[in-house]
Each structure stands twice: as structure tokens, then as C-alpha cells.
């Protein structure tokens, strides 16, 4: 549905987006991740046709957004950053205006408004002026606007920004459900959101795609992915390290916490270790040595760690070391 080829955008000497390419098919939810100023919003603005790219090409549903903007824009629903809306209108008036611009008439328009009002829980503020709404309601009003024509393509720039935890949950559920039939791109800072909603995630940094894959694949890139964390009692940390070092697939052991009666440690695997192998061997050692094993699990890796290790500038990384 969405095809982006080598998209570039420069503002004067500043390069905001530097050659991004990807495709999103129907039934996919693509998460855009990246630090502030990485070029997420700029990319979305180019995909929706709001700003023209310096170079590259965007096609939506087969229509080139530069050559055939009207046909392409018809297929797209867009929630811009900060959820703008006309403050002097009522929620109903605003949705009615957007539905009319989307070419809906009469009964069809009323039904469409009714549908999104229900989906976004706007009944209670329907005839209230937009500038009197709380941030959450305003956000949902703008979100309702983006899905009013039941578009095939949805572009959402930080759709859960400013919502409370319950509302966040609702919106995520909504996105996931709609993602079964639509092609969706959404950006976020919240990493759990990516795991909860996305079928694929892309990390963008300084205008470039630095990682691209399913959330599980991305987590694999984490340093701790595949490591085994264990809590044991009845053994000193020195003895624990020594015994664990004898395991053939273990690379090194780190003691995370040492209490009076128990030790929390993490064993890192050697590269190319079959998953689960390290945990099995650690358990064997514990049994043989008659340690009191309280907890043992294999780390899946954490997205925030991957995110940090990829997007932190090199200088900062070195300082940390």
C-alpha cells in the first residue's frame, strides 16, 4: 500500500531525512522509533503529501503523491503531531467539516460521524467547542478525524501522546484491530507500545533507518539477549563465578547483586549458542552443586537497550565507557 523510495529532505544545510526506503503492506503496522529530531515527523509529512520531498518518491495505493496527490490523499488518514483541530468549532462541527471535505454526503456522513464518535468515546463532548476540551479528548477528536473515511492507509504521528494509561490502552487496541485490514504507520517514543502494537518496527536516527525488523528481531540485537539471569542461595559469589565459568557455552558471568544469603548473577552466552542451551547447562551445574536455585530465566533482550545502543551518538557511548 505504501511504498517509499530513497526519500530525502533538506532544510537549507540541514539534512532532516537522508534516503529512507521501505514498504508497508495491508495488514501491517509499522512503528517508527527514534529520538527527537530524527526525522520521523518530516518523513510522515512527506508521505502524506504535506511537504514535498527534496528527492525520492512516495506512492500510496499505487498513486504517486507528487503526481496524483488528490487520489493518493483520498486513501490516507492522517493524525499530525500535537493533534491540531479548529478551536472555534464544536467536535461535531469539526468532524462534519472533515467528512464533507472527504466527499461524504447526507446519511453516509452522519453514519460515519456516528461510527467514529463511538469508536473514540466522544459522545459526552460532541457539542462542546474544541478549545474547551482536555488534551486527551482533543487528541481523540483529531484521531477520529483521521479514520472518518475508513481509510486504507493510516499515518499516525504519536497517537498516544498526552493520553492517560487507560486511553493509551484503548488507542493501542484500536490501532492493532484496524491494523488487520489497513496499512498503518505510527511513530512513538514509548517502546512497550511497539511491542504491543507493531508487526514491524523501524528505528530512525539522524534521518536514516538504523534498524528494521519485527520487535522480537530487534530485541535480539540487545546485549543481554540470550543471557541467563539467576538468583541462588547457599553459595558465595566467588564460587558461583568460578563454577559457571566452567560451562562451555558461557562467555562471562556478571554478579549483579550480592546479599547476605543470595546472589543475583547473569551469565552471557558465547556467540552462536543454541537458545535454551545455556539455561539448561546452568541448571545442571546448580543441581550438581546443590545450590538453592530461586529463579532462572533467559533474557529476551530489551528494546530500550537496543534503542539506546543504536541511537546514542558515538561520543556519548565512549564517555559512558
Amino acid at each position: 500500500m505504501i511504498k517509499v523510495e530513497n526519500l530525502k529532505k533538506t532544510f537549507g544545510p540541514k539534512v532532516a531525512v537522508n534516503g529512507i526506503s521501505f514498504t508497508v503492506e495491508r495488514g501491517e503496522v509499522l512503528g517508527f522509533l527514534g529520538p527527537n529530531g530524527a526525522g520521523k515527523s518530516t518523513s510522515m509529512r512527506m508521505i502524506t503529501g504535506f511537504i514535498p520531498p527534496t528527492a525520492g518518491k512516495v506512492t500510496v495505493g499505487g498513486f504517486d503523491i507528487a503526481e496524483n496527490p488528490i487520489a493518493a490523499k483520498r486513501l490516507v488518514g492522517y493524525l499530525p503531531e500535537n493533534a491540531p483541530a479548529y478551536t472555534d468549532m464544536t467536535v461535531y462541527g469539526f468532524l462534519d467539516f472533515v467528512a464533507e471535505l472527504r466527499g461524504m454526503r447526507g446519511d453516509q456522513r452522519k453514519k460515519a460521524i456516528h461510527r467514529v464518535v463511538e469508536m473514540c468515546f466522544l459522545e459526552s463532548v460532541l457539542y462542546q467547542s474544541v478549545d474547551t476540551l482536555s488534551k486527551g479528548y482533543r487528541h481523540r477528536t483529531c484521531f477520529a478525524q483521521s479514520i472518518i473515511h475508513d481509510p486504507d492507509v493510516l499515518i499516525l504521528d504519536e497517537p498516544t501522546d498526552g493520553l492517560d494509561p487507560n486511553q493509551k490502552h484503548e488507542v493501542r487496541t484500536l490501532i492493532r484491530r484496524m491494523g488487520e485490514k489497513k496499512a498503518i504507520i505510527f511513530s512513538t517514543h514509548i517502546l512497550e507500545e511497539v511491542e504491543a502494537v507493531c508487526s514491524r518496527a523501524m528505528i530512525i536516527d539522524r534521518g536514516q533507518v538504523v534498524a528494521n525488523g519485527t520487535p522480537a528481531e530487534l530485541k535480539q540485537k540487545s546485549d543481554i539477549a540470550g543471557a541467563v539471569t539467576l538468583t541462588v542461595g547457599g553459595v558465595t559469589s566467588a564460587e558461583l563465578s568460578q563454577k559457571l565459568a566452567q560451562i562451555s557455552v558461557a562467555k562471562r558471568t556478571a554478579i549483579l547483586k550480592e546479599g547476605s544469603s543470595r546472589v543475583l548473577a547473569r551469565v552471557f552466552p558465547r556467540p552462536d549458542t543454541v537458545s535454551g542451551e545455556l539455561a539448561r547447562q546452568v541448571a545442571e551445574v546448580a543441581q550438581r552443586e546443590k545450590w538453592r536455585l530461586e529463579e532462572l530465566h533467559t533474557e529476551e533482550g530489551r528494546l530500550d537497550e537496543v534503542f539506546r545502543s543504536i541511537t546514542l551518538p558515538e561520543t556519548v557511548k565512549e564517555e559512558r565507557k
Binding site: 488528490i70 499530525p80 478551536t87 472533515v98 472527504r102 478525524q145
Partner: peptide, 12 residues
């Protein structure tokens, strides 16, 4: 208000 972004991403 930022509504320019809405207006110019409508099919008009």
C-alpha cells in the same frame, strides 16, 4: 493551530 497540515493533507 497547525490545522494547515490537516487542510493540505485532505483530498483538495
Amino acid at each position: 493551530l497547525g490545522t494547515l497540515e490537516l487542510l493540505f493533507t485532505m483530498p483538495i
